[in-house]
């Protein structure tokens, strides 16, 4: 009997402790919930009236839908004052897919370009780098840049002054051939020569 009373006492003490803990936890969580609700900007439980009054500038009024007007802007045209060129004097240098090293087979042609530059000492040369359209735009522009630079470096090594050679990349933007074939792609992977004549002449 004694044992039972003791056990029941222990039991009810345990239960009331559990109950108290639960109540305490409940209130803590409840407080937490309310706090969260208050910080929620436009949560699902927010009453609609509250949401509208939170727009400080418009009391209970409708939301005005506006849009920033886009006007027009004209781009500065930089074409004037630059150079016009003479093309077709030298054949294009062609490159392998994804490569920018000048093949040995172009040695003779490079020498004739260098010789012409030596003879026409007032001329400036522009080398355009181009690619086929299989790569991505930006990488192709970098690749075209690198192709033009390779040809420039070779000409410098043959005695042409670097100040007389400009390079520009057009990537895949100016193809000479637009079919999707190996033959066509090869023609597009090129360094193209333009003899520059100063504008305003």
């Amino acid at each position: 009997m004694k044992g039972i009373v003791a056990e029941t006492g222990k039991m009810s003490r345990f239960l009331s402790l559990l109950a108290l803990t639960l109540i305490a936890v409940s209130f803590m969580l409840l407080a937490g919930c309310q706090q969260r609700k208050a910080t929620r900007p436009e949560g699902a439980s927010t009453p609609p009236a509250k949401e509208q009054s939170s727009e400080a500038t418009q009391q209970k009024g409708p939301e005005k839908i506006t849009e920033q007007k886009t006007g027009t802007v004209s781009s500065q045209d930089m074409a004037s004052g630059s150079a016009e060129g003479k093309e077709g004097m030298f054949a294009d240098v062609l490159f392998d897919f994804d490569k920018y090293d000048v093949k040995d087979s172009y040695k003779a042609e490079m020498q004739s370009v260098a010789a012409w530059m030596a003879k026409n000492s007032s001329a400036t040369l522009s080398i355009e780098g181009h690619c086929d359209d299989r790569g991505t735009n930006e990488y192709n522009l970098a690749l075209g840049d690198r192709r033009a630079k390779s040809v420039k470096d070779l000409l410098i090594s043959l005695g042409v002054s670097s100040s007389r050679i400009e390079t520009i990349s057009y990537g895949e933007e100016k193809p000479v051939c637009t079919e999707q074939s190996e033959e066509c792609w090869e023609k597009n992977r090129r360094a193209h020569f333009v003899i520059l004549v100063k504008a305003g002449k």
Binding site: A44, P48, A49, E51, Q52, G61, P62, E63, I65, T66
Partner: peptide, 12 residues
């Protein structure tokens, strides 16, 4: 759960 009014020009 949402009850709201809006105003806009017809273009928008």
């Amino acid at each position: 759960v949402l009850s709201k009014q809006y105003q806009a020009e017809k273009d928008l």
